[in-house]
Design a protein around this nucleic acid. Sequence first.
DNA 1: AGACTAATAACCAATATTTCCGATACAAAT
DNA 2: ATTTGTATCGGAAATATTGGTTATTAGTCT
Lengths: 206, 206
Amino acid sequence: MIDVAIIEDDQDIREYLGMLIDRQPDFSCSKRFYSVESAMEPLLINPPDVLLLDITLSENTNGIQGVSQFVERGASFEIIMFSVHQDDEKIFQSLCAGACGYLTKNTPLPKILSSIKEAHQGGAPMSMEIARRVVQSFRSTPNFDLSPREKEVLLELSRGKSYRKIGESLFISEDTVRAHIRNIYRKLEVNSKAEAVAKAYQSRLL
Amino acid sequence: MIDVAIIEDDQDIREYLGMLIDRQPDFSCSKRFYSVESAMEPLLINPPDVLLLDITLSENTNGIQGVSQFVERGASFEIIMFSVHQDDEKIFQSLCAGACGYLTKNTPLPKILSSIKEAHQGGAPMSMEIARRVVQSFRSTPNFDLSPREKEVLLELSRGKSYRKIGESLFISEDTVRAHIRNIYRKLEVNSKAEAVAKAYQSRLL
DNA sequence: AGACTAATAACCAATATTTCCGATACAAAT
DNA sequence: ATTTGTATCGGAAATATTGGTTATTAGTCT
């Protein structure tokens, strides 16, 4: 028996979806709220197994802020975002904040139910398009054709080392380090250590 | 009709799984290979819709290198990794290289079939535990309690700007920028711009 | 084979920027 | 009342950036 909570400001959706879930043999859904504010205390005191959380709420706190707040206050239930939005920002913000899954609102009931089960079993249920975006976020971008040595130097740079320290680490002179860094700057089209490190992270070189 | 290819060095698994898939009404699976080397040319010339690719292969090229090679050579089919391994390194390397999904070898046939379908439809099918690891990789680490202003300065830092430029951007004096950066360094426990940017990216502050 | 390019390594010098050490001030929040 | 974020100032030392130059080795192209 999985205890499901819903936070959703649209009364029709909230009550209808809640009822549909509650009718299923292995699910109960009596905890239904229209805002994060009204849900916070009840859900911390009497936690569900899984929370379906809408992103766009009419009260002050949106769904993403809601996840953060639940996590900060030690909530241990699984949170699945439930949203019309498919934009990357919202997806990644949700997952960063601590949601374990993300469903779009056009998801059919059977998929919603299997997703709740999956979340409860330690999975990470997502709508197909969402999963693809998440996976694509790992894709490497160009290599910039850094030589192996240059990559080593770049790694040391990201550790905040000075030219001298890098030279000591790699057993080359400070001047050589300088030469490598100049070439790294040229290839990455940057002109400072901070920018080089930023670009390296953005391009998943590091 | 989805055309499925398999690269798997264990003959028993390869032929058995290939046969099972081939028997399904909407699937065909006649392209079966024991190595990336032997599969490369045939699959580039006559591409399948979806490739199931084992990670641990007995020949020189492993599955992850295989993904990279297919992607580099312009293959347009979807690649699902198929592996006993659940370690984060292998998962993220695969996805970074360009795989769209990742199944563990204990996956039951119906789930394998639905995953192939999902990949073909533009999804990112993953075993439950794999998906959770992927999602968890987004989790934010501590905030370091940077003030809003400090976050702004940090962002400018990551763009490679000098103290003076940052001051101009934020309409404060160079001295103030200095002070902010001092505080950022204290909070992040670093002592250079490059290291601050690195830590910011690692902690997903940027 | 000869020409060419890239990676690696090293040196010198001039200038710019950053880091570290202080100190001060005010408003807002706890 | 104390802390915190914001803002400012000055000086000294350390470090980074940019410019130039040279050399060896390895690989590529014609």
